[in-house]
Design a binder for these strands. Structure first.
Lengths: 221, 221
DNA sequence: GAGGCGATAATGTGATCACATTCCCAGATC
DNA sequence: GATCTGGGAATGTGATCACATTATCGCCTC
């Protein structure tokens, strides 16, 4: 079992990892960042060829992603990207509205100035991606903004659940992007930063809830 | 690939299913119902032998369970049942306290008399299991009580998240059983039923939250 | 021209084998 | 008596093959 004898691998972080882990992580990020369209169908052999591995590790990676809701498997085992119904989108939005204010509130006591500076920097990157119309980059930076806050909550299980929700919404996110008002976005993030700096928990909960819910609502209607 | 030519299979519901699915479901229930002790180690070959299949479907089932937090995999791939730290237990309890009142509240408008009767019957079974000191049976009936309510919420993604939390707490549940006050349990469930019958949403949220949190709290301290 | 139908390709599933790594314990050494 | 060490057993990983099922598309019939 060759581990790092493949000279074509240019990327150190993905070296030394088991093949199934590498496939899993790569697919997971692509899905979460909306790089795959909803309802897109994948095949084990296709993925295996793309990653230059056999079907075996791909099957494990895909099964794992399906367990997280990042992929859908038909009764006959066919693999597709989830194509969410409006009801499901609304439900996932409710979950975000339930989990993320709680995470933010738990992070609040531990949020210092350094964190807020980092968040401001991320906000800057978001603006850049929006200006350049880079959808995946925008989604990635936006989620990074949220994750940076929630990491301070010291609640790994809760964060994992939130990421599961992001994952399920991933393919739908791209569609959301075009429908969204850009200035609203920045405004909500600024409200979050203000509440964070002021130590205002109710305000923070509301700001996070609004930011999270806003875009998804117009996707349904 | 033989599907149902095995004459030793006595159970129709598990026939016709793919091997990995059968392994997955069986292990999942055993974990959720606290039949496996925390920190217990499993092996692919051992599971494969127990289910009379090869390692291949077992690997998929285990990977899937690990993705849900029902199993833990060490960096070297060793498989163990999760052994939760007190902090983690507290966090999972918080998640239950967050998700389940919401599910109950959503189910409330759809809760009719027939549902309450079914819940009363389940409560009766819980009492029987307690009297007979059947741990797994008690846990199963208790979760069935909750799931029966939440199914009415028409929120599959939210219910799936709640079940994920139950799954992670599964192996720890057995320990919880012995520490728990039996009469308290029945009292909380009766409070839930009363609030359900009265259409009292705040009361229902509180009752569910209390029932869910109570036992887990004393497990930490 | 539209709808059913059969052959063929595509796809997921499971078993088996070879291999690298890790764990575990017996035996040696200080 | 405790600690280090070496070897064998145990374990997870990945590739390959055979097979059943399913989807797809071209062809035929009405």
């Amino acid at each position: 079992m060759l581990t790092s004898s493949n000279p074509t691998a240019p990327n150190p972080p993905e070296a030394g990892l088991a093949a199934h882990e590498r496939v899993y992580r790569t697919l997971r990020l692509r899905i979460m960042y909306g790089e795959l369209d909803p309802g897109m169908s994948l095949t084990l052999r296709g993925i295996a060829a793309a990653f230059d591995v056999s079907m075996t590790p791909v099957r494990e990676a895909v099964r794992r992603l399906a367990a997280e809701g990042a992929l859908t498997m038909s009764s006959s085992g066919r693999i597709t990207t989830p194509d969410l119904s409006p009801e499901r989108i609304e439900e996932l939005a409710s979950l975000r509205a339930l989990l993320e204010p709680e995470l933010a509130a738990r992070a609040l006591p531990r949020a210092h100035m350094a964190l807020i500076d980092r968040l401001r920097a991320i906000n800057g990157r978001i603006a850049e991606h929006v200006a350049k119309h880079e959808v995946a980059g925008y989604i990635r930076a936006n989620l990074e903004f949220h994750r940076t806050i929630y990491l301070r909550a010291q609640a790994p299980a809760m964060l994992a659940l939130a990421e599961t929700v992001w994952l399920q919404l991933g393919p739908t996110m791209r569609a959301l992007y075009s429908a969204r008002n850009r200035t609203d976005l920045q405004r909500h993030h600024r409200m979050i930063l203000a509440a964070l700096a002021a130590g205002d928990e109710p305000g923070l909960r509301l700001a996070v809830r609004t930011d999270v819910t806003q875009g998804l609502k117009m996707l349904v209607g």
